[in-house]
Amino acid sequence: MDKPLILVTGATGNQGGAVVDAMLEHPDQWQVRALTRDPSSAAARALTARGVDVVAGDMADEDSMRRALRGASGVFGVQNSRTAGLKGEVRQGTTLVDAARDAGVEHFVYASVGGAERVRGIPHFDTKWEIEQHLRASGLPATVLRPTTFMDVFTMRGASVGLGMMAAALGPHKPLQMIAVRDIGVFARLAFEHPDTYAGQNLELAGDQLTVPRIAATLKAAGRPGRYARLPKVLLRAMGKEARMLFWFGESGYDADIPALREQHPGLLTLMHWLTRTDRLEAA
């Protein structure tokens, strides 16, 4: 019997790449097809070398998606408003959903964002909520993954400024939930492995929750810079709509059930474990 074919969008990016990695941990179970705009890129060629079927495609183009979906039993969908724009993100997401429905896909796993169903006025949350609603209306068996803050943001260039903004919005005592991108991939794989359990579920994903001072202390303990200066809230307000997310973190914020998630995925990473993983350090 042929192995099920899973189409992974965004396969050369963070979340899609994590899904590919998770699926390839069990190569006997799956065929993995990676969608990319440029199959000649170094990242795409690296996927091909790992045995992934890399195909060119544009999520906003219906014909392109029909070709990419041929033979696929499952789809992992993720879009990026930073590259596509807000309207472009919605167009990509809804076009992919419609093409998957028409192709008879058996399970659609969509990467949204934590809190998308609870808060309005954050532009990149609103777009994902719109795609979620379109997916729900399509009738496709689906699992929605709603990641919280990526742990990666604490090691990126300019992380000290980001911590300062979070300190302004959260204060010293309110924790922020976060997730290792690797674990998003694991939950996507679990959804494909156990469709009867995960179809219809909306999972907010986090592996740790720490106050800003604890985040800084954890970074320092792992040999990373943990410096930050708490910024005045007036500077956040000057950011306009982009600051809405930060203020929401302080008002209510993410609400993942971390103990329940760890029961499903015992290897769920804390920030310290993510920072000190041997395989991550070797790949850096």
Rank of each mutant, 00 (worst) to 15 (best):
L35K: 06
R120K: 13
R120N: 13
K241S: 15
Q177N: 04
L145D: 01
G171H: 08
G267C: 12
A111T: 13
M23F: 14
F150D: 06
H265A: 07
R50K: 14
H265M: 03
A180Q: 02
H26K: 10
F108I: 12
Q29P: 00
G51I: 12
L190N: 05
G16Q: 01
M165L: 06
G104S: 06
A142D: 01
G253N: 08
A229W: 05
L170Y: 07
A229L: 05
K3L: 14
I184M: 14
A44S: 15
D21T: 14
M59H: 00
G93V: 00
G158R: 03
G139Y: 02
R37E: 08
Y110D: 03
D53R: 08
W248A: 10
D2W: 09
L96V: 10
G267K: 12
V32P: 04
A206T: 07
V161R: 04
R277T: 14
A168D: 11
A60F: 02
A283W: 02
P225N: 03
G164D: 08
V144L: 14
P27T: 11
P141C: 10
I179R: 08
S112Q: 03
A256V: 15
G267Y: 12
T197C: 00
V212M: 04
V186K: 07
R136S: 13
F187P: 05
G253Q: 04
G223F: 11
M166F: 12
F187I: 03
G74L: 13
A216R: 01
E117Y: 01
L235G: 04
D28Y: 02
T95Y: 08
F249R: 02
G139S: 00
K87P: 09
G253R: 04
R262P: 08
A238W: 02
F247W: 09
W30Y: 15
E25R: 14
R277W: 08
M166A: 14
D28I: 02
Q133S: 05
L170W: 02
V19M: 03
M239N: 05
P259I: 01
S138A: 07
A111S: 15
S40L: 09
E89G: 06
L176R: 03
G267F: 10
R45V: 07
Q209R: 14
A43V: 03
P259D: 02
G13Y: 10
A168N: 10
F154Q: 11
D255M: 10
P4I: 04
R70T: 15
Q15T: 06
I6R: 06
G121C: 12
E204F: 00
A22I: 11
L281E: 12
A103P: 06
A169C: 00
I215L: 06
G16R: 02
G200I: 12
E251Y: 07
L190C: 09
